[in-house]
Amino acid sequence: MAYRKVHQIIQSHSSADGDGVRIQRVHGFDNPHFSPFLMIDELKSVSPDDYVGGFPPHPHRGIETLTYMLSGHFQHKDHMGNVGELRDGGAQWMSAGNGVIHSEMPMMTDGQLHGFQIWINLPAVKKKDPAQYHDFQTEVIAEKTLPDHSLVRVIAGDLTIKGDTVTGPLQQTGVPLTVADWRTQGAANISACLNPEYQTMVYVYKGTITIGGKHIEQGQLALLSEGEGLAMAASDAAGVLLLSGTPINEPVVHYGPFVMNSMDEINQAIEDYQNGTLV
């Protein structure tokens, strides 16, 4: 079996979004090796001042978002009438499709807020579909504890580990993908099988891991080469997000909350939002 190697390492950078929410961001709108993913925002704080303003009502078109919280709560409201409070360890998925207006307000628990929002591109044929939303509380996230006491949580798609396939609750996405969280308490390793047609990347949110002899440190994202196998090792406590999915080989034009295939479509989205016809 051919194992994936590190193709490129990208350092996350400090940024702010919404009403001044502090985040660590990695984006790849112009990087074809990122597809079908577009951006990862890590929210991590012990100070309410870093996030108290949250993300007031704002629009999206042409993307999906997957929000995953390690600790802290997130309240979602949208124009469709959906209201969901994401708790520690849970996830929420939204497909903006042709248009959505929503708000997201973070809430700290036990003195911590730590989570992620992942932007996923939609293929052109699905960018005009009606918006959808679903949340997955921590109780339904699929988990597997490995012999070295490390933990795998599969949020979306499937992940096969030593012949055992772990299936996450989120299966309805614009393109087939897998999103998982690997956590170690100390020295540990994992060997998994992935669809060889998927593009794969990992984001390290705690500690340092090794893939094919290359070290990926906290706050770094590694884009991986082709292959069916993925082997990761940690010498101490670590946390890793695994993102793997079918690449979308289409033009990407990004402007604020809109991701389309042409500038004309971006201009139309802006006009629709200004005219109140986005949704």
Score class of each variant (00 low, 15 high):
H7I: 01
G84H: 14
S45F: 03
V52L: 08
V26H: 01
T208R: 13
Y203Q: 11
A131Q: 08
I63F: 06
A124I: 01
M105A: 02
A234M: 08
Q132S: 15
D41L: 02
I101L: 14
I40L: 15
D236Y: 03
A16T: 15
L278T: 07
D78E: 03
P48T: 13
P123W: 05
G54P: 06
W93E: 04
S103L: 11
L278Q: 05
R183Q: 15
L194T: 04
F258L: 10
Q24I: 01
Y3L: 14
D148V: 10
I216V: 15
L223E: 09
G229P: 00
Y68T: 03
Q218I: 05
P36M: 08
T167D: 00
G229L: 08
G89V: 08
T173A: 09
P56S: 07
E42I: 03
A233C: 03
L86G: 02
G72P: 05
P123E: 09
V100T: 12
I141S: 02
A96H: 04
P59I: 06
N267L: 13
S244D: 04
G84P: 00
L243W: 01
H134T: 12
Y68D: 00
Y203I: 12
F34Y: 11
P257H: 13
T160L: 02
T246N: 05
A269V: 10
T208W: 00
L43W: 09
D129M: 13
G18Q: 08
V100S: 06
L241D: 05
Y205N: 12
P196W: 03
V125P: 00
T208S: 13
K214R: 14
R4H: 09
E217H: 15
Q8D: 13
L86E: 02
G157L: 08
D135S: 14
E265K: 07
L122K: 05
W182H: 06
Q11C: 01
I190E: 00
D78Y: 04
G84E: 10
P36C: 07
N121H: 08
I120A: 02
S45Y: 06
M107E: 14
S244M: 05
F55R: 05
N195E: 13
L230I: 11
P48R: 10
I190N: 01
A131E: 00
A231H: 15
N189D: 14
T200D: 02
S12A: 15
M105K: 11
F37M: 09
M94V: 13
V125F: 01
H102V: 06
I63M: 10
L70W: 00
M94E: 06
D78L: 09
I63R: 04
P247W: 05
D78P: 06
E271S: 14
L151E: 13
S150L: 05
L38P: 02
P176E: 12
D30G: 06
G81K: 05
T246P: 01
Y68F: 15
I190W: 03
E250N: 06
I118D: 04
I23M: 13
S71P: 00
D236F: 01
V204M: 05
G90T: 04
E64P: 02
S15N: 14
G115Y: 07
V253T: 11
G115C: 08
